[in-house]
C-alpha cells in the first residue's frame, strides 16, 4: 500500500524535487555576487528596505552578505519552507481527500484493510515522499554552500534542513487530518493554508503586536525558525514539539476517518 501510494505520486515528487532544486541552484549561487558586492546587499543597503518588508523576512536580513545570513534569508526563511509546505499539501491530499473526491477511495476502503491502517500507510507514504525531496535538496544545499564557501558547518545545514522537513511534514499532516475528517480537498487546503500563513505572520510581522504575540505558541514557524538552527545547530526541544504535534494530528486523522461515512 505504501509503495503503491509512492508510485502514484512519483511524478509529483520528481517535479517538486526538480523545482526546489532549480530554485536552490539559482538562489544559492547568487551568493557569489552578493559576496563580491557587499555595498549593494550590505547592512546599509538593507536598512533602506521598508520596515514591514524587513519584518516579513524576519531577522534574516541581518548579515545578508555573510554566508549564514544569506542562506537563512534566501533559503530557510521563507521560500523553501513554503515550497515544502505546498509540496506536502499536494502529497497529503492524495492520501484521503483527493481519492475520496474522485471516487477511487471507495474500492480501497472495501479492501480487507482496517481504516486506521489505510490512513497510517498513506501518512507513511507522504512522510517518505517528503523525506526523499528533503534528502535531495539537502545534499544540493550543502553542496552549493560548500562551492560558494559560505563557511557553515555541515551539522547546522542538516539541522536547518531537518527543520524544513519537519515543518513540511507537520503542515502536510494538517492537510491530511483535515482531509481525513471532511473528505474535501478544498477544506483541507484552506485549513492548512490559513494555519501556515497566519503562523508565519505571527512570528514575523506580528511579533511585536502584543495582542497576537501569544499565538506564536501555536505557530509551527515558531518551532521551526526561532531556534535558529542554521546558526546554533539542532534545536532539539522545538523539533520534538513539531514531531509530537505531527503525531497527534496523524492520530486525529486516523480517529476521525475511522468513524465517519466515506464518499457521501
Amino acid at each position: 500500500m505504501v509503495s503503491q501510494s509512492l508510485r502514484d505520486c512519483r511524478r509529483a515528487l520528481i517535479w517538486w524535487t526538480i523545482g526546489i532544486s532549480a530554485f536552490l541552484s539559482v538562489y544559492v549561487n547568487v551568493y557569489n555576487t552578493v559576496k563580491q558586492n557587499p555595498q549593494v546587499y550590505g547592512q546599509v543597503a538593507l536598512d533602506k528596505f521598508p520596515g514591514p518588508l524587513k519584518d516579513l523576512m524576519g531577522q534574516s536580513l541581518e548579515n545578508f552578505s555573510s554566508g549564514v545570513g544569506f542562506l537563512q534569508g534566501a533559503v530557510y526563511q521563507l521560500f523553501v519552507p513554503f515550497l515544502f509546505a505546498a509540496c506536502a499539501m499536494g502529497l497529503a491530499n492524495r492520501a484521503v481527500a483527493g481519492p475520496e473526491e474522485n471516487g477511487t477511495l471507495e474500492l480501497l476502503v472495501t479492501l480487507p484493510v482496517a481504516r486506521a491502517r489505510l490512513v497510517l500507510q498513506r501518512f507513511a507514504a507522504m512522510a517518505l515522499g517528503l523525506l526523499a525531496v528533503a534528502a535531495v535538496t539537502f545534499v544540493l544545499t550543502w553542496l552549493f554552500a560548500e562551492v560558494n564557501e559560505m563557511g557553515i558547518p555541515f551539522g547546522n545545514i542538516l539541522a536547518a534542513h531537518l527543520g524544513v522537513y519537519l515543518l513540511g511534514l507537520f503542515l502536510g499532516t494538517v492537510t491530511l487530518a483535515a482531509g481525513a475528517a471532511t473528505g474535501r480537498r478544498g477544506v483541507a487546503m484552506a485549513v492548512m493554508g490559513v494555519w501556515a500563513v497566519a503562523g508565519y505572520m505571527v512570528i514575523t510581522i506580528g511579533r511585536n503586536v502584543e495582542a497576537i504575540a501569544w499565538l506564536k505558541w501555536v505557530s509551527p514557524f515558531h518551532y521551526y525558525a526561532e531556534g535558529r538552527p542554521l546558526y546554533e545547530g539542532l534545536p532539539v526541544g522545538d523539533y520534538l514539539v513539531l514531531a509530537g504535534a505531527t503525531a497527534v494530528l496523524a492520530l486525529t486523522a486516523v480517529l476521525s476517518f475511522d468513524r465517519r461515512d466515506v464518499g457521501v
Partner: peptide, 9 residues
C-alpha cells in the same frame, strides 16, 4: 450496499 461494506455507518 455501502452499509454492508462498512463504507457508511
Amino acid at each position: 450496499i455501502r452499509l454492508l461494506l462498512d463504507v457508511i455507518r
